[in-house]
Amino acid sequence: MIGRLVRAPLLHFAVLGALLFGLQQSVSLRRVEPRATIVVSADDVERLRAQWQRETARRPDAQQLQASIDRYVDEQVLLHEALHLGLDRRDPVVRYRLLQNMRMTLADTPIASDDAALLRQAQALNMAARDLVVRRRLIQAMEQRLVSGVEVDPKAVAAYIAAHPQRYAVPMRYDFSQVFVHDDPQRARQVLAALYAATASPATAGDAFALGRTFVGLSAAQISARFGSSVAAAVAAAELGTWIGPLQSAYGWHLLRVERRLPAQNAVPDAALLRRAGYMLRRQRERQVLLAAITDLRSRYRVRLLADAGGGGGA
């Protein structure tokens, strides 16, 4: 009798229809209705305030407290999403943790050895949201899902390289010879005259200088860091192949002859640079994607703030 009923096409039709109807209802409802309301209670705000103070040894001002609350709401959104996707039922770590909790709580009861019953009980207690570890696990799992598709293609990496010339491009560089006079600009002028007259050799003229006497491939910034900005400016303005100076630095007096200027170059996105920059871009993308995804998810929830978060408590 029952067997015949189960095999009846009409019943199949009815059950399938009901399922489809239900599915459609739930889908369309979800589109228009917020998934849930996230309540931020006065207790929550006070807890966040105390947490901030514990971590920074200062009371948060209004802006900082608001940032705290926003962060809390974001976490709640991620948690709801994780539960919505049923991550708490599928994740072995969460299951393990929930079962441990329940076995400890219900150790002396008949269902202590019945995992399914324990998990149902845990769900009824909303333990996934209450247990700190499970909550963090679910939030992180959710975050990982949100950024899991992030990839960067070579075109994007090339554009990233072009957009960061200060990091990847090569600035104008200079090669120059240098003669150092440690004490006296007058003596430096004499040496300069001897260099002009070729009665002194640039290889031995002047005093000892720890950095040596020839410099190659230095940018204006590097010259500035070693010799000061006025020497860097003089090098940039110098005529090639002519001794100039004396120029003063923190060390003493310099005579310089700029031998060569190497023009600035855009970054060459060869394989090595593409890979280097790719690691950096991907790291940046993941963070952007995560923030955007959370913003999007947040719009599907209603947030009710049951406390005054404005004052900040006299920071």
């Binding site: 950024v147 960067v152 990496v157 890979r275 790719g278």
Partner: peptide, 12 residues
């Protein structure tokens, strides 16, 4: 864990 796979697409 996905964190290690540097999904640089064609690049990598």
């Amino acid at each position: 864990g996905a964190g290690l796979c540097l999904a640089l697409g064609l690049l990598l």
